[in-house]
């Protein structure tokens, strides 16, 4: 029982990171029906921004997190303007290839500055408690709570504010909505800013939990977050959160009760089976194709 509780806590921590990154994929997909494959690398850049801010300004955790979120958000907007906007009318494949290219560019740019793995300074005081045999660290709690907080905030923005309404409108129809006076480009920029800054936040928190960072750290976790988004129903924000926690949970529990070599194999097989029965993801709705 203690063992299961301990593993559940591990699963919550991993799942909340996946969920935060998955939100970036799903938001961009929702508004542009495009998969931003550079998102995993923006997560990595977020970790490095946090690392640089922590080294240069010696700030505590929250300001460092904000600096990284703002930095990555601006970078996301710039990438959208420079790389994706000119391709908005081009076939989807062109945009996806461009996104992959942007990702590789970001990796190699970081590699120029930091060819070696870097050790991230501890910004959060780490206290561990043992409650009834379960070891809980303050870091775990902070990561889980911060992620949940950011997700609730995002959900509020999208569902309850004007900006959120504009986002949903643009996502619904890009031809009619501008005629109603919605500034489409601005809304797309805001979506990119929010989505990528959540990736940046995930990067900073991840690098606090696992304090060795390198330019390739975003690749695998980016793929996994993308899968989370698909499982939850890509384009659906609550779906991305659920997908993240499901993938984190499945991964940890497979490693917990089966030989850990089977972890990715079993985890991804389960997800494939799930997609056979719900091809649009857990919360996804099939969109009728207009011919």
């Amino acid at each position: 029982m203690i063992y299961i509780l301990q593993q559940s806590l591990n699963a919550l921590q991993l799942g909340s990171i996946y969920a935060l990154i998955a939100l970036g994929y799903t938001m961009v997909y929702g508004i542009l029906t495009m998969i931003n494959f550079a998102h995993g690398d923006l997560f990595m850049v977020g970790a490095f921004f946090g690392f640089m801010a922590a080294l240069a300004f010696k700030l505590p955790f929250i300001p460092t997190l904000l600096i990284s979120m703002i930095g990555v958000g601006l970078l996301g907007v710039a990438i959208e303007r420079v790389a994706y906007k000119p391709l908005r009318q081009a076939p989807r494949v062109s945009a996806i290839i461009t996104a992959l290219g942007v990702g590789i560019f970001l990796e190699n740019l970081t590699l120029v500055f930091y060819p070696y793995p870097q050790s991230v300074p501890q910004l959060l005081q780490n206290i561990t408690w043992t409650i009834g045999g379960v070891t809980v660290s303050s870091l775990q709690i902070i990561i889980i709570l911060m992620s949940l907080g950011l997700m609730v905030l995002l959900d509020f923005i999208v569902r309850r504010t004007m900006v959120g309404m504009a986002m949903r409108a643009v996502s619904w129809d890009k031809t009619i909505v501008p005629l109603m006076g919605v500034p489409v480009n601005l809304v797309i920029s805001i979506t990119f800013a929010i989505g990528t800054s959540l990736g940046g936040a995930a990067g900073v928190m991840y690098s606090q939990a696992f304090p060795v960072i390198d330019p390739y750290m975003g690749i695998m976790i980016g793929w996994k977050a993308f899968i989370s988004a698909v499982v939850g129903g890509i384009g659906n924000i609550r779906g991305a959160m659920i997908g993240g926690f499901i993938l984190g949970g499945v991964e940890i529990m497979v490693a917990a009760f089966l030989p850990s070599t089977y972890r990715d194999f079993v985890a991804f097989t389960l997800l494939l089976v799930l997609l056979i029965f719900r091809p649009y993801g857990i919360l996804g709705q099939p969109r009728p194709q207009k011919v």
């Binding site: 063992y3 301990q6 593993q7 591990n10 699963a11 921590q13 991993l14 991840y206 939990a209 696992f210 060795v212 390739y216 750290m217 690749i219 695998m220 976790i221 991964e251 940890i252 529990m253 490693a255 917990a256 030989p259 850990s260 070599t261 972890r263 990715d264």
Partner: peptide, 20 residues
Amino acid sequence: FETYTTGDKDFTAQLTKIKD
């Protein structure tokens, strides 16, 4: 006798198992 794959950073599941 636990495993992971290159690039993993979260080893908590395996380490919890080891601790047990």
